[in-house]
Design a protein around this nucleic acid. Structure first.
Length: 562
RNA sequence: UGGGGGAUCGUCUAAUGGUAGGACGUCAGAUUCUGGUUCUGAUUGUGGGGGUUCAACUCCUCCUCCCCCAGCCA
């Protein structure tokens, strides 16, 4: 059986599918679908759904469709339709020739609606939205039937056809399922099937003036496509009786099994389209591809790879309980990927100049640097070494704390791939007293291959040569939401209060090694000892711009915190 | 409150009557020209009370807590 070879234990969905296969349900066929509404950009929560739907179809040698659930033209657009396809492809999933649209089924859906009317299972209601709400009852009280529930078959047919013809105002009528106004499940109290929308649909144009609701269109779309397992999130659990009702009353030949799972929640960020939209529209972030956003476009720009995201989704698992995944899991996934694949380069983000007093002025020599210690085939490159170099501000302390292995007065460190240097003093600004340069001497025998090459010192730090380093801007990101405010829900006001004011830090005066001059946008690098970075699309020849994808783990920072 | 779901290490997630396991995190050690990586070890958990059973995360029962539903959104 093509199922759980890769899983020591299957999740509850795969277990269910396995059972269906064994019982010959659906003739052992497995056909899923990923059905986003084209009303926004995809985010990492959708990635979970894609990994599930496409992943399951692969494991069970089945198929997975991409379906755009475009039943509400007031919120949707062709831009989103395109963006969704780009993102699905980018994540690495292939729907082959099975790209579908709910709007492709509008004609068939209409026929099914007519059939329901003819079978006395649906009626045209002229109650207003407010009246329908009142008639619906409450959680504890049953609803009451609309006067129009008794409308004659012919009248229903005629009105529904008028609705379609565009002869009615928005809100004048709605087609409702005739189920049970006293049902304890509010979704079964004669839910709306069709509503009038005098708007142009991004695909069907002005052909339609009535549009089916999710509850009507979704089960039938599944049936029309031969979907066997219709995976959706927990909030649709009590729509399942309605889902089944529609398929039963429409007498379709394929009755898919709806299975609900818990949606993804990620700590310190937002994963609802509404809130994402708010962040973009109110200018808290710079567009849908802002690297701080958990949108696929944002993650991509930030430097996250499709493999890391897919791996993350696998680690997170699938279950029915509400959960919040720690950012650490996502960060682990991208580090794991990039550690293997990203070439190492030297970059100094908070530069301090070092003058090596005993190194001849004007001399430049080459040192050999390893591109990727995890992958020898990536080879080496030459770095130039000279009298003046930059190191990071964090790698020097005048007053070093205990266990500080880096540079401080009278102490030695190794310059990675270069020499061991010793701090002999500092230059200061006469007025402010600020350090303007650090003075060092070097030990000429300590270069790789030198007589003292094996000499051990506690610390090794990164550096760039002042004479050929390239200026760069580096954008450092933190979580979008403050770690302190964990409560997920809130008003729009609440969201704003939780925003991390330091989610973006721009370092304008960084220096990077010259090899980065021909970096391409998006290619990941490890800035030695710091983290993973990639060139941003804002980058220009004169000023390179990098995004920090994720920092390296930093055990010194932990020690120092104590 | 009616209905529908859910509760297992700090965080995710396995174990459907038979050794509570894995991952992330954390801590400690080893290796390291990245305080990275890798390796080794450690750490901590079945919401509560009854019951059935040789044996309960699992079954029964009572309770507690959390999530979802009163759109002509999905």
């Amino acid at each position: 059986m093509a199922s759980s070879e890769h899983h020591s234990s299957a999740d509850f969905i795969r277990t269910k599918i396995l059972a269906d296969q064994e019982s010959q349900r659906f003739s052992q066929r497995v056909h899923t679908r990923f059905p986003p509404e084209p009303n926004g950009h995809l985010h990492i929560g959708h990635a979970k759904s894609m990994c599930l739907n496409f992943g399951i179809s692969q494991e069970f040698s089945g198929r997975c469709n991409l379906r755009l659930d475009d039943t509400n033209p007031t919120k949707e657009s062709m831009d989103y339709v395109q963006s969704i396809q780009d993102d699905v492809r980018w994540l690495g999933f292939d729907w082959e020739d099975r790209l579908y649209f709910a709007s492709d089924y509008f004609e068939q859906l209409y026929d099914y609606a007519v059939k329901l009317i003819q079978n006395n299972k649906a009626y045209v209601d002229s109650l207003t939205a407010e009246e329908i709400r009142d008639y619906r009852g409450t959680l504890t009280e049953p609803g009451k039937e609309s006067p129009d529930r008794q409308r004659s078959l012919d009248e229903n047919l005629e009105l529904f056809s008028k609705m379609r013809a565009g002869e009615c105002e928005e809100g004048a009528y709605v087609l409702r399922a005739k189920i049970d106004m006293a049902s304890p499940n509010i979704n079964m109290r004669d839910p709306a099937l069709y509503r009038i929308r005098q708007v142009t649909h991004h695909r069907t144009g002005d052909t339609w003036r009535i549009y089916p609701t999710y509850d009507f269109a979704h089960p039938l779309s599944d049936a029309l496509e031969g979907i066997t397992h219709s995976l959706c999130t927990l909030e649709f659990e009590d729509h399942r009786p309605l889902y089944d009702w529609v398929l039963r009353e429409c007498e379709v030949s394929c009755h898919s099994q709806q299975i609900e799972f818990a949606r993804l929640n990620l700590a310190h960020t937002v994963l609802s389209k509404r809130k994402l939209l708010q962040l973009v529209e109110e200018g808290h972030v710079n567009g849908w591809d802002d690297p701080r956003l958990p949108t696929l476009k944002g993650l991509r720009r930030r430097g996250y790879t499709p493999a890391a995201i897919r791996n993350f989704c696998e680690r997170v698992g699938v279950a029915k309980r509400d959960s919040v995944i720690e950012m650490g899991v996502l960060e682990h996934a991208i580090r794991e990927d990039l550690n293997r694949s990203a070439d190492r380069v030297m970059a100094v983000l908070h530069p301090v100049k070092i003058i090596i007093e005993n190194y001849p002025e004007g001399q430049v020599e080459k040192v050999e640097a390893v591109n990727n210690p995890e992958d020898e085939s990536r080879g080496t490159r030459q770095l130039s070494f000279s009298r003046e170099i930059y190191i990071d501000h964090d790698d020097f302390r005048e007053d070093p704390p205990k266990k500080y292995f880096r540079l401080s007065p009278g102490k030695e460190v190794r310059l990675k791939y270069g020499y061991i240097i010793c701090c002999v003093g500092v230059d200061r600004d006469e007025n402010t007293g600020e350090i303007t340069a650090i003075r060092c001497t070097y030990d000429p025998e300590t270069k790789r291959g030198g007589l003292q090459a094996g000499r051990k010192v506690k610390g090794t730090i990164h550096w760039v040569s002042a004479q050929d380093a390239l200026p760069a801007e580096v954008r450092v990101y933190e979580t979008l939401l403050l770690p302190s405010n964990l409560d997920a829900e809130g008003t729009s006001q609440g969201l704003e209060a939780k925003l991390n004011p330091d989610s973006l830090q721009v370092l304008e005066t960084c220096w990077v090694e010259p090899s980065l001059s021909d970096a391409t946008i998006g290619t990941p690098f490890q800035f030695e000892r710091q983290g993973y970075f990639c060139l941003d699309s804002d980058s220009r020849k004169q000023k390179l711009v990098f995004n920090r994808t994720v920092p390296l783990r930093d055990s010194w920072a932990k020690i120092e915190k104590k």
